[in-house]
Computed example of a mutant assay.
Amino acid sequence: MDPSINAANLATPSASLSPWALFVHAALVVKLVMIGLVCASIWVWAVIFDKYFTLRKVKRQADEFEDLFWSGGSLDELYENIGVKPTHPMAAVFSAGMGEWRRSARINGIEMSSEGVKQRIDRAMSITITREMERLERWVTFLATVGPVAPFIGLFGTVWGIMHAFASIAQSNNTSLAVVAPGISEALFATALGLLTAIPAVVAYNFVNNKLNLFAERLEGFAAEFSAILSRQSEAKENQE
């Protein structure tokens, strides 16, 4: 077999170093790595957009609800209008606390200001906060996983591609740059895809995680204030009686 023919065949991909050409001429294992990284990158961006718009929405809904809550209106009326079927996390926390407070009020012989009632109200709101945050945190773990793992997957594709390139060089008995460059470029393209997948995932995870922590603190603060309001109202009713 003429070595020059093999060298020419191997040098053909160098005519085009576009992403598609690098993918087409890559080894099968490297292609699978590239496809996996592209799919992961698409999913990462889908999660990023979903969390961005979701967090904006729940923040706006929380602002609107707090405006109603602190407007001085009746809590019972607010509960009937919003709390019965809550549509966002803060309304769900309010519904849990108000619902437990109403159930306790219907139990004969129980003082509304008793420690047991306070604990049940706090527990109901705490459980609701945990449930709502778990719903908001869905797929955030995916970002945390892809961030550190994607570069290593890309590196695996690179190592495999370089091994394949060296095997082709050995078969051609030609070490010219025209022979080496295409195979090395295909291999390094896998690393580039790994970094392009990992960097947005890491940045998005840090951003989303920070926003979620702040929102969780906001819900906990609201729950504490609401619990104090219910406690004061219970004590006022008992003093009147």
Rank of each mutant, 00 (worst) to 15 (best):
L32M: 10
S234T: 13
V33D: 03
I110S: 06
R123P: 00
P19R: 09
S74R: 03
C39S: 14
L188D: 06
A96V: 04
L78A: 04
G97N: 09
F65V: 01
A124H: 05
D50A: 12
L37P: 12
S4Q: 14
R103A: 14
E64P: 00
P151F: 07
K85M: 09
S176V: 06
L143V: 07
F65H: 01
A204E: 03
V117K: 07
P86H: 11
P200D: 02
I127C: 01
S234M: 11
A21N: 15
E217F: 01
N9V: 14
K51A: 03
P182V: 12
E132A: 07
P13I: 03
L37W: 11
Y205W: 13
G161S: 10
T128C: 10
R131L: 05
L193E: 10
V140K: 01
K118S: 13
F156G: 04
V202C: 05
D2F: 08
V44I: 10
F53M: 09
S104D: 08
A92L: 08
M90H: 01
L193C: 12
T141I: 13
N108L: 11
I127S: 02
N9G: 11
T145E: 00
A91N: 01
A11K: 09
S14H: 08
A8C: 10
W43E: 15
S41F: 08
E137P: 04
E235M: 15
V38D: 04
E220F: 00
F207M: 08
S4D: 12
